[in-house]
């Protein structure tokens, strides 16, 4: 691989943009395909276009045949980002779990007594209201959003932004009653049923979680199950 190509690949990764490195396995010839170029020429007319589109969709690397040549497609999608409102006890418990799972954790809380570096060493903390904070942290297709403050003043604006975004996971803490009130507020703000059903509430897998660490575990477990939805479905299918 040429250094310039590796350097370009690393630039895309650092900017959280998806790309595919295509390698001809016989000759070693390589090219880098950027997701941003997929809707433009010359890529649109490229015979490999349908395969590349599927690669970006699935995020899966693999080998394909084209004109008798074996091509290896190494798909690079950005690391999953976990954006949380609420620098609360559950968020503290999320820190080591997110780190082990290579989730880029960002904690947003305008209450500086909560969002303190002492409580969250080594974590990206934004001690601002969600509207300002989310300008620094765009919510994309590779982002999971979790609302944990219990305070609608903080959670709701962030939740609304998450529902307007392509976040692959949106979860909100609170009892069924709390969530029913939240739904009323979101409906009043103009959100429809399709938006509201995207919210995972009650949040997390049902493991009977009690402590903050257990709740954090149920949340990350649910995030992983959505990330790996295809594998979950395959395992659930009856063996014939």
């Amino acid at each position: 691989m040429k250094l310039t190509l590796l350097s370009a690949l690393n630039t895309e990764r650092a900017a959280r943009r998806a790309c595919v490195l295509v390698t001809e396995l016989d000759s070693g010839a390589q090219r880098l395909v950027l997701e941003n170029d997929m809707l433009r020429e010359p890529l649109v007319s490229d015979p490999l276009w349908p395969v590349l589109r599927e690669s970006f969709r699935s995020g899966k690397s693999g080998t394909v045949e084209q004109d008798g040549k074996a091509l290896f497609l190494n798909v690079q999608v950005p690391p999953v980002k976990l954006v949380v409102t609420g620098a609360v006890h559950i968020s503290q418990a999320l820190v080591p779990m997110a780190r082990e799972l290579s989730l880029d954790l960002v904690v947003i809380d305008p209450r500086t007594a909560f969002a303190s570096p002492e409580r969250f060493p080594g974590v990206r903390l934004i001690a601002e209201w969600p509207d300002a904070a989310l300008e620094q942290v765009p919510l994309d297709h590779y982002t999971a959003f979790v609302a944990l403050t219990h305070d609608p003043k903080i959670d709701d604006p962030a939740l609304e932004a998450a529902l307007r975004s392509e976040c692959f996971y949106v979860g909100a803490l609170g009892s069924r009653k709390t969530h029913a009130r939240r739904i009323e507020r979101l409906q009043a703000a103009g959100f429809g049923a399709d938006d509201i059903t995207r919210i995972r509430a009650p949040i997390g897998l049902n493991i009977g979680a009690v402590s903050p660490a257990e709740i954090a575990l149920s949340i990350v477990g649910e995030i992983v199950s959505v990330m790996r939805a295809e594998r979950v479905a395959a395992k659930a299918a009856p063996v014939s």
């Binding site: 250094l3 590796l6 350097s7 690949l9 690393n10 990764r13 780190r99 082990e100 290579s102």
Partner: peptide
């Protein structure tokens, strides 16, 4: 901490530059 594939590719670039 586990090295992610992103760390590895960044390291590869840094090593070549060294």
């Amino acid at each position: 901490m586990l090295s992610t594939d992103s760390d590895i590719l960044t390291t590869a670039e840094a090593w070549v530059r060294e």
